[in-house]
Write a protein that binds this DNA or RNA. Structure first.
Lengths: 196, 196
DNA sequence: CACATCTTGAACTGATCGGTTCAGGATAGA
DNA sequence: TCTATCCTGAACCGATCAGTTCAAGATGTG
């Protein structure tokens, strides 16, 4: 079976991404990736690069895919900040609820492993978290919040969003996850009401 | 050098705990533990057990040590709920600020790795998180909060506390961590003020 | 002194790791 | 049909993994 591309690159990258996402970098061997993608060990190295390179591509894929969803969710922040925040959390909650996808979050997973990751990967993980903060800061500053409140909420919301990864890994129920974000959403609601 | 115990068990366990804490289970080899504790490879197996057993002991040690601190912090929750919550977060923030200790949290680290940990260790990690929730629930119910609010805040605070582990691993500054918990503390303050 | 106890370093097993190489099969376009 | 291209399986490398074993050395107790 050869002559022209025998496999779908997107499908293979998705499979690799999900494998890393589920088991983490350290607990994913190249043989695991071979099984997950259906690609031969040799094909992985020739088409997808070595383990580190492939992991970086998966991290990038993950950040781009869900980054776009977070952006879309926050797009109405200026007019409807509360709805925007709810939509933001919904991106994460729906991802967690999807039985096709692992629990947790590839970025959070990688952030926790920073001390044992290669500098390049560690830097990318930090960058992804920083970008998430920027996204939230920009959206919240466009709302009626003061700059100070917007910055504090941006840090807080980014953190709470990552906490959902930890709690979902530990088997938290959808109701528990909703309670977690509920307090934050209420807090924003209060702040919007009192400091206008 | 022998005849009677040649090493201090507490010191050795602390060193092993910190090694697991910094690098995680998967990225800690028995040779790493040997180097960290100063104990011979053979001595580790004869005195501390195999890797899984030792990890469980370290997890238990960690949960007991900081569990006691969290309990102490929450002890004034009935009379001073807001101060109790601040003291609770301070336990984590001070641990993160301690240059002698790794960033992050051994429990959060383990929770993220649940899909690739042994069932026994995975169960213990879940248990530790559940216990933290119970601690918070009991403390908040003793305050002036309604049961519903207390339960929601218990979930939220436990999650935010874990989020500090993720963010500190990614290099968040003390100011950023303070902003994260500040929103939660303000939210509790508001709730205490409006729903008495 | 002699003995029991504890610890050490080193060697060893079998398995797995990341990464490379290569002969050969399968297919597409000419 | 011929050839260029792509992919496969399998073998191989050196390194590291967890875990075990053991002879030798060091110490405290009798």
């Amino acid at each position: 079976m050869a002559g022209k591309k025998q496999f779908d690159m997107d499908t293979a990258l998705d499979a690799a991404m999900i494998q890393f996402w589920r088991a983490g970098y350290a607990d994913t061997s190249v043989d695991d990736l071979s099984r997950a993608t259906g690609l031969n060990r040799s094909s992985i190295y020739s088409s997808l690069g070595d383990k580190d390179t492939l992991f970086l591509r998966c991290l990038d894929r993950y950040a781009a895919r869900y980054g776009a969803k977070y952006d879309a969710a926050l797009s109405c922040a200026a007019s409807e900040p509360l709805a925007a925040l709810r939509a933001f959390f919904d991106v994460t909650l729906e991802r967690i609820a999807d039985p096709e996808l692992p629990d947790g979050c590839l970025v959070a997973q990688s952030a926790m492993a920073i001390p044992v990751l290669s500098p390049k990967v560690a830097a990318y993980a930090k960058e992804a978290l920083g970008f998430q903060r920027l996204r939230l800061r920009a959206a919240l500053k466009a709302s009626r919040l003061t700059d100070q409140d917007a910055e504090a909420f941006a840090e807080h919301v980014a953190a709470v969003n990552q906490s959902l990864a930890v709690m979902s890994r530990a088997g938290a129920s959808p109701a528990q996850l909703l309670a977690i974000v509920g307090v934050t959403v209420d807090a924003l609601s209060q702040t919007l009401r009192t400091r206008t």
